[in-house]
Every structure is written in structure tokens, then in C-alpha cells.
Design a protein around this nucleic acid. Sequence first.
DNA 1: TCAAAAGTGTTCTTGATACACCCATGC
DNA 2: GCATGGGTGTATCAAGAACACTTTTGA
Lengths: 229, 229
Amino acid sequence: MSHTYKYPRAALTVDCVVFGFDESELKVLLIQRALDPFKGKWALPGGFVHVNETLDDAARRELTEETGLKDVFLEQLFTFGAVNRDPRERVLSVAHYALVKQKDYQAKAATDAANAEWFPVSMLPKLAFDHADIVATALTRLQGKVRYQPIGFELLPPKFTLSELQHLYEAILETALDKRNFRKKVQGFGLLVPLDETQMIGRHRPAQLFRFDADKYKKLKKRGFNFEL
Amino acid sequence: MSHTYKYPRAALTVDCVVFGFDESELKVLLIQRALDPFKGKWALPGGFVHVNETLDDAARRELTEETGLKDVFLEQLFTFGAVNRDPRERVLSVAHYALVKQKDYQAKAATDAANAEWFPVSMLPKLAFDHADIVATALTRLQGKVRYQPIGFELLPPKFTLSELQHLYEAILETALDKRNFRKKVQGFGLLVPLDETQMIGRHRPAQLFRFDADKYKKLKKRGFNFEL
DNA sequence: TCAAAAGTGTTCTTGATACACCCATGC
DNA sequence: GCATGGGTGTATCAAGAACACTTTTGA
């Protein structure tokens, strides 16, 4: 079965910049293309949008198919529409970015995503299409958004230490932060709940674990509260 | 001539939320639809993207065709892809927003845009499709962006008074601002150049005219300067 | 002389920055 | 006992908020 239109139409894809954080490095999940064009090259997970699914649905479906990821934080980023961005024909890409907890991902990785791999943002390989532009745009967006929205927690496990949180912000913003000032500020929001557990790794004092109180944040946000790092 | 594809394809449009400012009110430019669906209803200027033009080009072309506007500040906003947003078939809209100096527009309005009209953002008529959502998204973006980028000047004539600038910010942000603090702050950036002219309207003291020094801003921005209101 | 908007400084409060030492643990 | 990261408080400085009166013009 085929489909005929009066005027030529662009093809429509979604692509996802998946960010992860591990051991004080911000990473991006890439897949190795199995088909031409750019066969063998690294690229963002993504693919064609079905005519009866939303952009968000398409992005999530492609993520699951290509990387095994489900139920992640996902947001639309920008639509890339340069005329020759795909050598075959006119193809638009509605780019998204996702934030995932790397540990959640480990389990799925083994089964679903044989050819997916994490790369540090500072050491990306050459990417297919205009995907390098897309990653750059996503990084800029992440750097901007992490300062006034508590989305960083999407990159951390549910229980985390203040040092982990600080290292995350330092990795994203590419700056060093003062330990005491950082702790004062993030604890000042009253959104970090200390748990009855500590994390004991390495031969030094164990660290207090916290969780982010998402419910409390939602309530505060409704009353005009502004998270600002 | 017709075009055939293996899988069905969504149609692709651009729509523009054109903001203007006049007499202390923020306005949006709407056109009255000449054709079904939603014939006679007010809607955003916009239309189908040609297969060989960029999204930006398409948005500018449609703006010129439907409203006579040219050379305006224009930025991509968000891509709206709900499956049933157009009753005819699947149609995506890559929404943009534009900022125009209303006086620039007056001249063209007479000739080109018989059925275009400005509406205060607070008193919009019912809009076609999901255009009300698009306007709401654009307004939120404008409110966010105006605080850390000097885009407000795009809505003012080249020569303006500090009161006009303040009223603009008050209209966009929907808050009252303190006159002395506002002046102190905007003049503190050193980006407003006082002119040898004053504006004399009404029976009261004439106001100093300023222009925005865009060149200086560009240079400062490169050195990491941050405009922040 | 009155109405109407333009213009102008200081005080107070708040948040940002800078900075150094003791603590708990494993080896 | 020593190396390692965890944890804590204060003093200074800069920016934001609050606030009222004089000036210039046209009618």
C-alpha cells in the first residue's frame, strides 16, 4: 500500500539526546547505525514518526526499541529542519533530550541494546547527520534548565549524597562549586530529605544519603516557588 | 503532478505568534481564516512548509504573505504534534514567535494585510486549531526570555524613553516595577545611549530618548556578559 | 496655577562569596 | 596513624527592595 499527495512532503523523525551521569562525568548514549546512510557511524537514537502517534510517543517508542529505556524524563528540544541534513531526501527531526539514571539503564543494556554505548560529552566520536549540532543544543539547554528547575535529580539514583549532587552540577555546568555554599543552598530549599542510611564507600567517613521530595516541590511550585541554583 | 510514499506522511506547517507593543499593551497579530476548516475564525499567521525551504524561511515567507511583515525578530518556539490538532489529517506545526515594532507594521498593514488585526493578549478571541495553546506557550517563553536577553527592544521603536521601556516590561511580565530601581538597573548595563533628543507628548515634562546599543551588547556577550533584568 | 509624567538617592535587607578546620572510616 | 572524602559557620560584599519629593511642560 502506498500514499499519494498533491505536494511533496518531508519525512519526519525524532531523535533523542540521552544524558546520563556516572562517576562525575556527564555522558550521552549513542547507537551505532546498522544501515546506510552513515552505516557504522555513531548517532543519536531515533527514527521515523508514525502518522498516528504524538512526537512524545514516537520519541519514547524509539528509545525503547533502540536502547531498552522506558519511563524516562523526556522533553522536546528543538526541530532541526535544514534542507540537506539528510542526504537521501528532506527529513525533519524533532529533537528531544532525556535524563536517565545510569543504574536503571545497566540492567536493560545487557538485553536490549547491544550496540548502544555511553560517551562522555567531552569525548564524543564523529556523529552522523547534524547530530553533533543537536547534542550541542541539548547540552546548552540542560545547562540553562538545571539552574532553575530541579531536573538534575533525574540523573541521580533515588538515594544520593550531597557530594554526588554537587559533582553532577559541576559536570553539567563545567565549573567548580564551593562545597559549603552549595550545601547551604540546596538544603535551604527544604526539598532534600535525609534518610536513615549512609553510603559507605572508600576508606573515609560515610556520607549521609538524601532523597529529593518531588511531591513537596510540586506543591511549592504551584504557590509560585522558584528553584534556583 | 503527485507524490507517492511507502508510508503515510504528516503535513507540515509553520505558525507564528507575532507580538507587538503599543500604548502599554502587549498584543498579538491574528488573521481571519478565509478557508475551511475554521473559516472566519481568528488564527495565527502560518501555512504549509515547502519541501525545499527551511523552517525559518517558511515562517518568514508566510509572515510576509499574510501580514506584509519582513525582517522581524523570529525564533522557533515549539513543535505541536497532537494527532488530532487538525480535523482534516495529521498536521504538525512548528510554531515560531516574532517580535515587531508596531510602527514599522502600520505602513504595510494598509497594503498587504487587509484581514490581519492586533488583539491584546489578555483579550484574544477564540482561536482556530490549538492556536490558543501556541499563544500561551509563546507568552511563557517571552516572559522567561525577556529577563535574561535584551529582546524587549525588538518591540520598541529605535528611539524610546525609559518609561516606554518600563511599561513594556510591565506589560510582558504582568507586574508593576519600581521606577527608580528599574532605571538604575537598565542604565547600569551601559547599553542605553541617551540621544540629543527628547520626546514631547502631553502636557508634562519631555522625556529623554535613548537607543539600545546592539553592537556593544554583542561584544559584551562574547566576553561572557549576562543581561539580566 | 494645576495636572501629569519625568527625573533623581539613600537606607535596609537579603543573598552571594570567600574561606579552614575537625570527623569518621578502612587500610 | 594516616590518607581520604564528609561535614560544618562566620564575616564580608554586592545586589535587590522599599520609599517621596522636585522638575518641566501644556493647557
